[in-house]
């Protein structure tokens, strides 16, 4: 009989782990609290302009389709973990499944599994916490995630052209990352901002695009050329605006220090895109408590060693994806596969 694994969270991390485990002859229960699987990536768009910018969204979506039809992966949507007892090789878990219709009752299900992979992903930083940046107050202030959704839903990012001036757009980086509460780099927002900047330029050549940054996180295989490509057409300004205010003409005025020039400046834009970062999901603590695993200093799932990013303090529980710390899609997929491989390795002994 096949050994069984419970994967909690059907984002790209959980999906990658499930596919890898199934390939290695395990049976997988893939638990998802929402009605549909895929996590954040399901609301993301292709960021190609006249050529592919390697954002990996299509790669992730291919995996989502693959997992849906896999015979050895049972997908349990609208479901969460209620309880968990036992140890490596025999965990007894209780699953709660919310009904599809209001007249049905909550269903409970008991499963016996050999190992568990928590892969519940991240939460987007709530930029409303920075009242000074005007999100929720001014219509022209958006987040990177708003761009993803709009582009996916409308197939276009159309910025209304005013007859008095060509629209101008500015990205503000590190919104909610690298501060005293979340003192780490979110690793994905510089890249999505640059990809969107190129895409916006491509779709609306008249628009001017500016990126306010502290330093550009340009890591990742093949990413350097994207930055090179931006340098010609996108304005990069080192310095983070302290405030966004709507001026009498309904345009958005920002005040910042232009660090390269060493002076305080004011500029006006029509749209401000906040590069909101990655923070732990509110449910991370609750799941950690049910599983008995530790959190790290930032509130993500903790692991046992500097060079081991999958093993938790409980034997048989391995974490995967951005619930362990910020990751882009390629790193998330690799991390999900690594968690699966750890299980294969442990049970091969």
């Amino acid at each position: 009989m096949k050994k069984k694994v419970l994967v909690i969270g059907a984002g790209i991390a959980g999906i990658s782990a499930a596919l890898e485990l199934a390939k290695c002859d395990f049976y997988v229960y893939l638990l998802e609290k929402n009605a549909s699987i895929g996590g954040w990536v399901s609301s993301f768009t292709c960021k190609a302009h006249d050529k592919c910018t390697k954002c990996s969204v299509c790669v992730a979506k291919r995996k989502i389709r693959e997992v849906l039809v896999h015979p050895d992966i049972s997908i349990l949507t609208n479901s969460t973990l209620k309880q968990c007892h036992g140890e490596i090789g025999h965990f007894d878990v209780e699953i709660e499944q919310n009904p599809m219709h209001t007249d049905q009752e909550l269903q409970e299900q008991k499963l016996a599994v050999h190992a568990i992979i928590p892969a519940i992903g991240f939460e987007l930083f709530d930029v409303k916490q920075y009242g000074r940046l005007g999100y929720g107050r001014y219509r022209g202030v958006l987040t990177g995630f708003d761009l993803e959704k709009t582009m996916l839903e409308n197939g276009n990012l159309h910025f209304p052209v005013n007859n008095t001036h060509a629209p101008s757009i500015a990205f503000i980086q590190c919104a909610g990352s690298r501060n005293d509460n979340n003192n780490y780099c979110s690793r994905v927002c510089c890249k999505y901002a640059m990809r969107f900047a190129l895409l916006i330029k491509h779709l609306n050549p008249a628009v001017s695009v500016t990126i306010f940054f502290i330093d550009i996180q340009n890591a990742g295989k093949g990413f350097a050329p994207v930055y090179e490509e931006c340098v010609g057409s996108i304005q990069f300004i080192r310095g983070i605006p302290v405030e966004v205010i709507e001026n009498p003409g309904k345009r958005l005025e920002v005040r910042y220090e232009n660090i390269a020039q060493g002076n305080v400046k004011r500029d006006v834009f029509d749209f401000i895109i906040l590069s909101a970062g990655i923070v732990p999901r509110p449910g991370t603590w609750d799941l950690a408590r049910k599983l008995g695993i530790n959190l790290d200093e930032y509130g993500f799932f903790g692991t046992t060693g500097t060079f081991n990013s999958n093993d938790t303090n409980v034997k048989g529980i391995f974490t995967a994806g951005s619930c362990q710390g910020p990751k882009d899609i390629p790193d998330t997929i690799a991390h999900g596969i690594a968690a699966a491989e750890r299980i294969v390795e442990v049970f091969a002994k």
Partner: peptide, 24 residues
């Protein structure tokens, strides 16, 4: 300090004296 310039951009003294720059 990682030199983001928020201090200078928000400082009321920098507003009236361009040579006064907390980040610097």
């Amino acid at each position: 300090c990682f030199a983001c310039g928020l201090c200078t951009a928000s400082c009321p003294v920098s507003e009236i004296d361009a040579d006064y720059n907390p980040r610097k």
